[in-house]
Amino acid sequence: MSIADTWRRLRRGPWRVAVAEESMTPALEPGDWLLLDPAPRRWPRRGSVVVVRQPGTGQLAIKRLAAGPGDVVLAGTEYVKLGDEAWLLGDGGGHSVDSRHYGPVPLDALVGRAWFRYWPPRRIGLIPRRRASSARARASIASKGKLRK
């Protein structure tokens, strides 16, 4: 990737963001400052932390990518196979406003992937990918076997 290309990508979207509210604790705390990989062309891998324009409100939301294109999720009462969409969940158990409220998120709502925390100093470091952690999150990601029934 050329320097000019990188520069263009950085110009396209925000790349330094501050976290507000608590649905991503303890992975991300309110007040954390993060670097984004802006304007990705496709969904990152499962377990990544992404910033999206929240469907409905258009506000920037930060959530964990629980399932991506091709995965099957339990949306409400039915199983849905995701197209070019992702199923996003907060880490904070039952209280997060996420795909359980607004459903799968289309690719064009994706703003960036959060990859590094640069503030506060004692928690500087890469943001690890991990499984969406709450029990409900696990329950809502269905195995592919279930769809065939």
Binding site: P14, R16, E21, G90, G92, V97
Partner: peptide, 17 residues
């Protein structure tokens, strides 16, 4: 230069706290 340009929300259904 360090300060973030944008706020992103990890929304909860109870406005936290």
């Amino acid at each position: 230069w360090l300060k973030p340009t944008t706020t992103v929300y990890a929304h909860c259904d109870v406005p936290c706290g």
